[in-house]
Design a protein around this nucleic acid. Structure first.
Length: 935
DNA sequence: CAGTGAGCGAGCTTCCGCTTGACTT
């Protein structure tokens, strides 16, 4: 595709090339004879400061500070002229070639003004944003927003050294429109996915939830792991741990070995069992040793002769690890320093800004020439020539979707400062992180570690006649090489056996006799797969090619903020809501949460970037469904728009929010949190689930215990009058207090009297006032609430009782079927009969009651459309503007004090354009309110 | 998940990926 896909972009592209006065190179000077002045725009302010001196006085270097424009975040950001459009909610005109609506991000308006000013004094603009898809897009947005009337060129560099920067300024190119297209397509896909699927969750699970290409897969990984843990059956197996003695001359004299086979049959170890607790093989080639057999065998071996039956040794070499990129830095800082991803990045940002390290958001492990030399000379200085790799090492990438716009993360500069040298300036997290980065970088240019691995078999015949074999393995490092500088920490789940741990064996020869000094039967059980931690999740996401260096930390934050995941120590534990959401997505949007969806998307975006795939066709396939013969797996996702519509109709919210456990016990995700439910004798029984109970710890026994706890809630104390316990709880209608009635006496229920006699008295209840919370309400307040309704007196006219009560809409008076609202909750306890009678003399007000009582917050001028005067009033949903006929709420960013007549008219016009709000009847299936299942 | 009596102007929630201050206590 040679032309831009949107008209504005095509125009911008034309402008940029037609405006340039030379096709190659850049003008050396202006016609007036003074040197050409150029404005260079990079993304990061720190980078701008760094490269300015390299370029000299004829260059002005500024930064965009990331993206300057984006799709509108929500309705409030959509310019008035597009408000009424059907696609305004998405910010993408899906029926018109998916034309995006871009707005300058509100907080970047000042930045755009600054850049426009900077443009005034120069003769040429160099767009030096990062050399990747996002950077190319930022460059285009700058071009399209600043609309420069001078030549514009694209400048790219991968490392920040003076020669690299000077060369980049000399060898500029034009903007790559296809690459910009690829970014725009990615952006639109993510918007459509997120903004179409999230509302399905609001209606079917809970408001404010979210779905997205990245977060939904991250959540699914964590849920999937928890499911594996829940289904896991542990297996028990035994072996024998022996301590063997190789004689007084051996060094070390004693070494450990483990029983591996009996009569030629392998003894089962953890690896031989599946997640169901059964052996993976059933052909008899593996035998499970139980405790009794292990003990018997250990006894039968006591004092028997043992012989070394085989000795194998192999040379061992190990290469250093690649220098850090964002993901590996987060993983290692997580494992070694116990930093969260966010903490690592905060610290790295400080180190970067203060010039200690190179850029910290990178997916590259490449070191610049000078960095390689710096690392080598530092290694030489510290450890000697022998420890430096014979030739410079360059590490190539093996991770999906790398864009490699930057270098690896390493100490900054042409020579590295050792941790000791910066210890006075840098402390705390920053120092520890620097030390880690420094070690890893230096180690990456060091020599391989070398040594020998040995494996030894020792055999012996038990007194009972069985032939037994023990095995031992060890590693001798003869030359540590890079290990002298850096040892990587492995994940906890491998059982703490660090790969580089050295366990030494004595020199042994075949046929040599050894004796057992200890023979200990040893019991083990298999463990479920470990939960994800921040480091292991980042690793998994990176391997799937999901997320970018700048987003790993925020992905973890997002899935926690949405309530999908919580942290227990360092483990990431999924919530029950996550089970519902992931279940919904898997069943109804399966393709969208496939682990290879992003990988397929990236391949197809590459095709767009190389000009072989048309953007609009591809998005159309994704959103409207694949046209006949359309290629591409993303397009085959099934037509998102239709899928959303069908799913809104068909998804049964009750089913989606029910997670079957064991027996007939179901976890249900309700509006007010998760609870257990089961049907006993035709009635459903429920129990709250504690917030801090991980799903895999919910066993049948624990479920029984939870069902056995009657009504929980915060115990406030005892009612001095009745002796009943008073508790505060969260209920379907909000927080309330109630009393726990004593169980009916034993004798009555067991003597065969009719059930009628056992009719339970109902406990008193009372909603909390708005000023109270379950956490803070006192016993005294609770007793007052329970004393309601209060009899105010008898209406002298009708003879009816007038009572004061607290209800759904607040405090009110009730006389038969006639009611009147009270203005304060306090009046429930203070209003007198005379006052009540007075209130009843007023006719029942229809909604104007509050309006009449409270004057408008502010009066405005006349509405430009109707000519009627406008006023701001305070309503149930906050302040709104009205002309007496149409009402419109103030939006985010509007304030009562500052709103102008124009803005008020705009809101009213907008409201009129939308017409009356549609009645909410369909698709609003509040799961908690649907009737119980027939069973 | 407690069961109580109106009538009336809702609008917003949400995505991913680039980047840092400007705010308040």
């Amino acid at each position: 595709m040679a032309t831009g896909t949107t008209s504005s972009k095509a125009a911008a592209a034309t402008r940029s090339s037609a405006g340039g006065s030379r096709r190659n190179g850049t003008p050396a000077s202006t016609e007036a004879g003074r040197p050409t002045r150029r404005l260079v725009i990079v993304e990061s302010p720190t980078k701008a400061k760094k490269i300015a001196p390299y370029l000299g006085r004829d260059y002005v270097v500024e930064s965009s500070v990331g993206h300057i424009r984006d799709l509108p975040r929500g309705a409030a950001d959509v310019p008035a002229k597009y408000k009424g459009e059907s696609w305004a909610r998405l910010g993408v005109d899906v029926d018109n070639s998916f034309a995006p609506l871009y707005i300058v991000t509100p907080e970047k308006k000042g930045k755009v003004t600054e850049l426009k000013d900077a443009l005034k004094g120069v003769d040429e603009l160099l767009l030096a944003t990062d050399p990747d898809r996002e950077g190319e897009a930022i460059a285009w947005h700058l071009l399209d927003t600043l609309k420069p009337k001078i030549p514009v060129r694209r400048m790219v560099f991968h490392e920040i050294t003076e020669p690299a920067i000077r060369a980049a300024a000399e060898n500029t190119r034009e903007l790559d429109q296809d690459l910009v297209d690829a970014q725009e397509t990615r952006r639109i896909l993510d918007r459509l996915y997120g903004y179409e699927v999230s509302p399905v969750l609001w209606k079917k699970v809970m408001p404010k939830l979210s779905a997205g290409r990245v977060q939904s897969v991250a959540t699914r990984l964590i849920v999937q792991r928890e499911r594996e843990r829940m289904a896991f059956v542990s297996a028990e197996y035994w072996d024998i741990a022996a301590t063997l003695d190789a004689g007084a001359d051996a060094s070390p004299r004693r070494f450990g070995a483990r029983l591996v086979s009996v009569d030629g049959t392998k003894v089962a170890t953890g690896r031989d069992f599946g997640p169901d607790g059964q052996l993976k093989t059933t052909d008899g080639s593996v035998r499970v040793l139980d405790e009794a057999s292990a003990r018997r065998l250990a006894e039968a071996l006591d004092g028997r002769d043992l012989t070394v039956s085989s000795v194998e040794s192999k040379p061992y070499t190990r290469k250093p690890y690649a220098p850090f990129m964002t993901s590996t830095l987060q993983q290692e800082a997580g494992r070694k320093l116990r930093f969260s991803a966010e903490r690592t990045m905060r610290s790295a940002q400080r180190l970067y800004e203060n010039g200690y390290i190179t850029y910290m958001r990178t997916d590259s492990t490449t070191l610049s020439e000078s960095a390689i030399q710096a690392a080598r000379s530092q290694a030489r200085e510290l450890y000697g020539d022998a420890y430096v790799s014979p030739s410079p090492r360059q590490y190539t990438r093996k991770v999906k979707n790398a864009q490699e716009a930057h270098e690896a993360i390493r100490p900054a500069g042409e020579t590295f400062r050792t941790p000791g040298e910066i210890a006075r300036e840098v402390e705390g997290d920053d120092f520890r992180l620097y030390e880690l980065i420094w070690q890893r970088t230096v180690a990456s240019q060091m020599a391989d570690a070398r040594g020998t691995t040995m494996s030894v078999r020792v055999t012996g015949t038990a007194a009972t006649g069985e032939e037994t074999t023990f095995a031992a393995s060890g590693r001798t490092i003869t030359f540590p090489g890079f290990l002298k500088a850096y040892v990587e920490t492995v994940d906890d789940q491998t059982g703490g056996l660090a790969d580089d741990a050295e366990s030494r064996l004595p020199e042994l020869t075949q046929g040599q006799a050894v004796t057992a000094t200890e023979l200990n039967p040893d019991g083990h059980s298999t463990n479920p797969p470990a939960r994800y931690t921040e480091p292991s999740l980042v690793k998994a996401l990176e391997e799937l090619g999901i997320g970018r260096p700048s987003t790993y930390a925020s992905i973890i934050k997002t899935i926690q903020d949405r309530g999908y995941v919580w942290k227990k120590g360092s483990a990431l534990v999924p919530s029950w809501v996550a089970f519902s959401v992931v279940g919904l997505l898997e069943h109804h949007f399966g393709r969208l949460v496939d682990y290879d969806f992003t990988a397929a998307m990236e391949d197809e975006l590459d095709a767009i970037a190389s000009g072989t795939q048309a953007r609009t066709d591809w998005l159309s396939g994704f959103y409207f469904g694949a046209a006949q013969g359309t290629e591409g797996s993303v397009a085959r996702a099934g037509g998102l728009k239709k899928l959303v519509g069908v799913n809104l109709e068909e998804i049964d919210a009750r089913e989606i929010n029910s997670i079957p456990m064991f027996g007939d016990v179901v976890v249900r995700v309700g509006r007010y949190g998760p609870y257990l439910e089961r049907v006993v004798d035709g009635t459903s029984q429920r129990a709250n689930l504690p917030d801090d109970l991980p799903p895999d710890e919910l066993t049948a026994e624990i479920a029984e215990q939870l069902f056995a706890v009657p009504a929980e809630g915060r115990v406030l104390g005892t009612d001095p009058v009745t002796g009943n316990e008073i508790v505060a709880k969260e209920g379907r209608y909000g927080p309330y207090v109630t009393e726990i009635l004593p169980e009916p006496a034993e004798a009555e229920s067991s003597n065969g009297t009719k059930k009628k006699a056992a009719a339970k008295p109902k406990p008193r209840t009372g909603s909390l006032f708005k000023t109270m919370t379950v956490e803070t309400v006192t016993l005294e307040e609770a007793l007052r609430l329970l004393s309601l309704p209060r009899l105010v007196g008898i209406d002298p006219e009708s003879g009816e009782e007038i009572t004061a009560q607290n209800g759904r809409y607040g405090p009110y008076l009730k006389k038969g079927t006639d009611s009147r609202s009270l203005t304060s909750e306090d009046q429930l306890f203070t209003v007198t009969l005379d006052e009540a009678v007075e209130i009843y003399k007023q006719p029942k007000q229809r909604g104007r009651r509050t309006a009449a009582a409270t004057p408008p917050l502010r009066e405005l001028g006349k509405d430009s459309a109707t000519g009627k005067p406008m006023v701001i009033k305070d309503g149930r949903f906050g302040p709104y503007v009205t002309d007496g006929e149409t009402n419109a709420s103030l939006r985010k960013g509007d304030s009562v004090e500052e709103i102008t007549d124009e803005r008020a008219s705009e809101l009213l016009a907008d409201r009129r354009a939308r017409g009356t709000a549609p009645k909410k009847t369909t698709a609003r299936k509040a799961p908690a309110r649907r009737k119980a299942p027939a069973k």
